[in-house]
């Protein structure tokens, strides 16, 4: 690791001010960033640790939505239970030690193409709340490791509308235990959302055909006639593109059955 300074603001105002410094970078749980720094793939002058920012901690019900502070750990979300499918997803991220540090804001800012939270945020039509604005999940994810966040912008909270039913199906990549393919499905009064992670070179995406078919008939058999094109799927030693495309349909079917 190249050396850097560490700043530990206690409030959002202090964090925003610290992030304005040259080459400053946010530090969430460090479960992605510290390994990245060890490989010298980043060389910030200053890390702004968000774990002490009071406004970014905690989970609260806000009408029909669940608001999760950006520095809330995966472990805290797993233990919450107000949005059971979301808690179940958080409980499947990494291992207990990773979940005790890693945060929802860090995961969404990073937007790893195989990460779990992007599927939940897109699949729930969540709102990403930052230091500057509110961004709809449909506008937030912009491809592998790319988001709508500007330089220095911090994810302060995420608001999830709580669905009538939902489920996350994760087919784990056997080495990293990230999603080889993960499907998050949620059923709302105004329709079904299906978001897929792990599969595409474009990062997390919505499977519109499945959403329409399931809107007419909420059963796994509604997917029978559909297929996912393999063109833009990830191909690697863990599975070729056609395999991932196939898994998208299989995991979506399982999610429908499990959501009931």
């Amino acid at each position: 690791m190249y050396n850097f300074e560490v700043e530990k603001p206690g409030t959002l105002a202090e964090a925003t001010a610290a992030m304005a410094g040259e080459d400053a970078q946010a530090l969430g749980g460090g479960q992605t960033l510290i390994p990245t720094l060890k490989q010298r793939l980043a060389s910030p002058a200053k890390l702004v640790s968000l774990s002490g920012v009071a406004e970014m901690q905690g989970i609260s019900k806000d009408g029909d939505a669940l608001r999760i502070g950006g520095a809330t750990t995966h472990g805290a979300v797993a233990a919450d239970g107000n949005y059971p499918a979301l808690s179940a997803l958080a409980a499947q991220i990494g291992d207990p030690a990773v979940r005790n540090r890693g945060t929802i804001g860090g995961s969404l800012a990073n937007n790893d193409p195989a990460a779990c939270y992007p599927a939940a945020a897109l699949g729930s039509g969540a709102t990403i709340i930052t230091t500057n604005r509110e961004i709809a999940a449909d506008d937030y994810f912009q491809g592998m490791f790319d988001t709508a966040l500007d330089e220095g912008e911090i994810v302060t909270a995420v608001s999830f509308p709580i669905p009538q039913a939902a489920n996350y199906q994760k087919f784990v990549q056997p080495a990293s235990r990230f999603a080889l393919v993960g499907v998050f499905l949620a059923k709302y009064a105004d329709g079904i959302r299906v978001a897929v992670t792990g599969a595409s070179n474009e990062g997390v995406f919505r499977w519109a055909e499945a959403e329409a078919a399931l809107g007419d008939d909420f059963s796994a058999s509604a997917l029978d006639g559909l297929s996912v094109p393999a063109d833009n799927m990830i191909s690697d030693l863990h599975g070729p593109a056609a395999y991932r495309a196939h898994l998208v349909k299989v995991m979506t079917g399982r999610a429908v059955t499990a959501a009931g």
Binding site: V6, K8, L27, G30, Q31, I34, P35, L47, S49, S51, G75, P96, A97, V98, N100, R101
Partner: peptide, 18 residues
């Protein structure tokens, strides 16, 4: 793995300053 404020964490993936 060590415990920080009672929670198991990977000490190689946390800064001493934190």
């Amino acid at each position: 793995v060590v415990h920080v404020d009672g929670a198991a964490v990977k000490a190689c993936t946390m800064l001493a300053a934190e």
